[in-house]
Amino acid sequence: MTLSLNVQDIALKKGHKLLVSNVNLTATSGDAISLTGANGVGKTTFLRCLAGFTPPHRGSIQLVENDSQLDGVSIIENYSHYLGHAEALNPARRVDQELQFHCDYLGGTDLSLREAIARLRLGALLDLETRMLSAGQRKRVSLARLLMVPRPIWLLDEVLSPLDIAHRALMVDIMQAHLSGGGIMVCAVHDPLPFDTRALHLTRPSLEEIGNA
């Protein structure tokens, strides 16, 4: 199965402010895209738009599976994981409760849950309340759903930043395994990823483009 994500001539707005315009991207199975750009240029908004959380101001996002175009499919519900800055962990709940909830809600199995816990080395954290975790540990807990529920497109917003060196290496392994398994990854980054990626650099629109929007 090959999958391809086609972004055509997207423009994004935040309120009345034009963030970026004329963004094009084609990513097929095995592609890793690193998304770069200055603060506030719209990297997060772009990822959220790919996930389908916010409609683009202009342009289209299409998903093609084995040469047939998938119309009217919600990308986030079926094909992708979006991991933002917020880990969505309730401070009053334990790690195992939150993981079980993510797994049940998104349609994972108990086996996949156990495998994800083992792979991300979360075993020791399971009976802690999430408020007791460090930033890196929280990030690892939230990463578990990438493994629990297999979906081809990963939309990741700066996921490596809070991790320590050992876990960064682990996560890079996981990413590479995902890509060699035919996955697609779009990752907003400040530091370049330690493997081959294609870069997509977002820049502010010119005054002319702002005027036309």
């Binding site: 996930a51 959380f53 519900e77 969505a88 309730n90 809600y105 998104l106």
Partner: peptide, 16 residues
């Protein structure tokens, strides 16, 4: 409010 601030809705919208 809490789930909104925590970003839980990103996960909730990723389900069916």
């Amino acid at each position: 409010e809490r789930d909104y601030e925590d970003g839980l809705f990103d996960i909730l919208r990723g389900g069916k």
